[in-house]
Simulated assay, not measured.
Amino acid sequence: MASEASFGRFTEGTLSSHDQVARTLGVEILGGLYKPGEKLPVEADMLARFGVSRTVLREAFKTLTAKGLIVSKTRVGTVVLDSAHWNFFDAAVLGWKVSQGFDIAFVRDLADVRRAIEAAAAAAAAKRCSPEDIAELRRCLARMDAATASASDFALADLDFHKTVGRASGNVLMRSLAAVVETALLASFRMSSPVREAEEHAASVAGHRRIIDAIEAGDADEAATAMRDIIGHGLSRIERGATSS
């Protein structure tokens, strides 16, 4: 969690200083330092903490309000909203969540969403993909196959694979959603990297190859099933790691 010491003080000329204030407070809210229903410190204390102008602080509060984290109430102050209001499909909010590390419940929630959305994207890609899409998917697969020593290399290739499926679906909303959750997906892939286990690595590559083959064959049902299976494969590795740690 960010602290006053690590955050430092901003000057009026700092680029996007209100975004940095918003990020620090957002991380603290998501991390439970300020709990739902609690009031944030008064404006004077916030100004003293961050060393910014009133305008910068209010812009930061507007950002947090737009993301569903806080609300300002007359004669009450600025109050943290219940987590039901927090917009986890906002790229910044997801980034703040990732910066704290994932709890297993959040990973499972993410997997549920991915199974629904990405399975539909794979099915749509089976009906709409171009030869160029298939070629790009196979390039991603080759990178994954070659990434036997670097979790980061595998994660980036895996992410590019899933983003390509989203583009190949031809559905602009699916593509947009994939972009929004990119930070969370990458963190999830890194957590579940199979590169240190030869059998797991081979199984993951084979599972992704199955998705490509189904898309190329125009088999929407098989493409969706294969996508759900590969997401479940990654989740199972994270769950095993969580129980053994």
Rank of each mutant, 00 (worst) to 15 (best):
E4A: 10
A5N: 09
S6E: 14
R9V: 10
L15Q: 13
H18R: 11
Q20K: 15
R23N: 09
G26D: 02
V27L: 06
E28N: 13
E28W: 11
L30C: 08
G31A: 10
G31T: 08
G32C: 09
L33M: 07
Y34G: 08
G37I: 05
L40D: 00
P41I: 09
V42W: 08
V42R: 15
A44L: 12
F50K: 11
F50S: 06
V52E: 07
R58E: 11
F61Y: 07
T63V: 11
T63Q: 14
T65M: 07
K67W: 08
K67H: 09
I70H: 10
V71A: 09
K73D: 05
R75V: 05
G77P: 13
T78L: 06
V79W: 08
V79Q: 11
D82W: 01
D82P: 10
S83R: 15
W86T: 04
F89M: 13
F89R: 15
A92N: 13
L94D: 07
G95E: 10
K97H: 13
V98W: 10
V98E: 12
S99W: 12
G101H: 11
D103C: 04
I104H: 03
F106L: 12
F106G: 05
F106R: 15
D109Y: 06
R114L: 12
A116I: 03
I117R: 14
E118D: 15
A121C: 07
A123W: 09
A125L: 12
R128N: 15
C129E: 03
C129P: 00
S130C: 02
S130P: 00
P131Q: 13
A135C: 02
L137N: 00
R138K: 13
R139A: 06
C140L: 01
L141T: 08
A147T: 04
T148C: 01
A151C: 05
A155Y: 03
A157Y: 00
A157M: 00
D160N: 04
D160S: 11
D160I: 00
H162Y: 04
K163G: 02
T164Y: 05
T164N: 05
G166Q: 08
G170K: 01
V172D: 08
V172A: 07
M174V: 09
R175F: 04
V181Y: 06
E182S: 10
A184Q: 13
L185V: 04
L185H: 07
F189S: 05
R190E: 14
R190V: 03
M191C: 03
S192Q: 12
S192V: 02
S192C: 10
P194R: 00
V195Y: 04
A198P: 15
E200R: 10
H201G: 01
S204W: 12
A206N: 06
G207N: 12
G207E: 06
D213P: 00
A214M: 12
I215R: 03
E216Q: 01
A217Q: 11
A217D: 11
A217K: 15
A220P: 02
A224R: 14
M227N: 10
D229V: 07
I231F: 05
I231P: 15
S236Y: 02
S236R: 15
S236D: 11
R237G: 02
I238S: 08
R240D: 07
G241P: 15
A242M: 05
T243R: 14
S244F: 07
